[in-house]
Each structure stands twice: as structure tokens, then as C-alpha cells.
Amino acid sequence: MWVSGFEYSSLNKRFEKMIIVEEEKKEEKDERLSTDLCECYLLLTCRPSYEFISASCILCILKVASRKDETEEVQKDVEIALLALSNIELSEGLKELYLNEIKEIIQYHQEHHNLAQLAYQSAWEFLMSRHYEYHDLEGVIENELCFAREAKRELEELTRSVDWKKKEEEMSKEESKKVMIIRRWLSTIFFFLSLYQERNEESVGLIGRIVQVFRAARENNKEISNWCIYYFREAAVIVAVEIEDLLNSGAIEIEKKDG
């Protein structure tokens, strides 16, 4: 994902042309082809070059992401759709509609647990990254959808489901996927802490959860443990958390031993 310079390539132009052709079809439109094209396009570039293509792609993919059928095939389609959406770093011209639909997807999962773990994380990634465009999202993310509570729970569940005694190359495909999802959650949590600096029990608990991830991964997964240390350090530098919280969580002790 995120191929450097993709937006200047001939393949990028080819994707855009094919998406436009499919979008302009009035009859016999191939919905599956449109979805596949849009997903590939958004996974390869974080900056769609045309606003109307961006909007068209997002609407197309949101339609797939909003499906609630819990069959394995549909869950996989939903997971890929949300992953593609989460890959967009900047996208001008987004409407409140998109945000409302993502909010509904998250709320529905919180009630029915219909999403795969990567799909759920990806929905949060998309919503969190829209903060730059919609600053009033703070109340939705922090209070309505309770990001800190959800992130703690997901991180704990994922950490428990990985056999950290194995080296990275010994892990199963499923375990490797879970490690990748943990890495994505760590990045999203750091983004949250850097944006929402109101100190409360839930946000402070996130630091403790990252400490637990570090202690589980430090022997055999240097990438994850090093990222944990990096986030502790950066959180202290940008004053995203209180030094007291780092001390109480054990993060300072980790810095002394491993930093």
C-alpha cells in the first residue's frame, strides 16, 4: 500500500480512466468491478488526484463497508473496503455523510460485533484521520464512541491472542496479521493522545495497555517493542500525557532499561 509516486504513474491515470468509464455507465454497470477498481486505487495512493473520483470511490466503498451480513465472504469484503478507506491520508471535499456512515458502522459493531478486528481498526483509522477536516469530531470520538475504552479492549484482546514466545518468522499467518493490527492500533492511539489531551482514567489506561504490549513483545518482536518505546518518548515530548502517568504505568522504567 501507499506506493511512492503512484499519483504520477501511467497506472494511476489508467485506474482513473477506468473508474470514470464505469461511473458513467447508465446500464449494465459492473458494481463488483467498480468496487475492485476503487479499492485498488485507494490502497495504492493516499492522495486521490481528482475530488470527484475520490468522492465517487468513497461512496462506492462505503456501500460495501456498510453491509451487515456476517458471512465470511461478506466480512472479507467489508474488511478490504474499510482498509482501503483507512489508507486515505488526505481527501478534500468529504461530506458529513461519510462521517455519519462510518460512525454508524462503528456503533453497529459495538452493539453486534459483526466486524473483523482489522475492519474495526480501519474504521477508527478513517474516522480519526478526518479530525484535520472536522474539528468538532472530538466529542464524537472521545465521548459518543468512547475511543479510549474501545482501543484498550481491542489491544488487550489482540495481545492475548498472540504467542509472543515465538519469533516473528515462527508465527502463523493469523498471528502475524494480529501483530500488524496491534501496530496499527498503537499508531492510532498515539494520534489520539496527541490530539485529545484531556487527562482521564480511560486515556491514562491506554498508556498502561501499551506497557503491557511492550512487556509481551520485547523478547521476540523488536519492531513492536521499539514502536512502544518510540510512542512513550514522543508522548512525553509533546506533553500528550502527564509524566506521573508514564511513571505509574511503568513506561519510564522501560525507557531507562531499553531506551
Rank of each mutant, 00 (worst) to 15 (best):
A81H: 02
I141C: 10
A65G: 07
F147H: 05
E96D: 12
K167A: 08
L11V: 07
V162F: 04
I224V: 15
V140W: 02
Y50K: 14
S10Y: 04
E92T: 04
E219T: 01
Q117K: 11
R32P: 13
E101Y: 02
L246P: 00
S49P: 04
I105K: 08
S54V: 02
F192M: 05
V204P: 00
S49M: 14
K177H: 05
E22V: 09
E175H: 01
L43F: 09
I182Q: 01
L37A: 05
D69H: 11
E253G: 10
W227F: 04
E156A: 14
M171H: 01
G5A: 13
N114V: 09
W185I: 03
D69E: 15
L33I: 11
A235F: 02
T159Y: 01
S161L: 10
K17L: 15
E242N: 09
E22M: 10
A251V: 07
E79I: 03
V179L: 00
Y230M: 10
S161F: 10
V162L: 06
M1P: 08
K166A: 07
S9H: 15
I19N: 01
Q121W: 01
I252D: 11
K222N: 08
W164F: 07
K178H: 03
V140M: 11
E96M: 12
W164S: 01
T35V: 15
L82M: 06
V64F: 02
S49Y: 10
R47L: 13
E138W: 05
A116H: 05
E150W: 04
K257W: 15
E96K: 09
I181S: 00
E16D: 12
H131C: 05
M128V: 09
F192D: 01
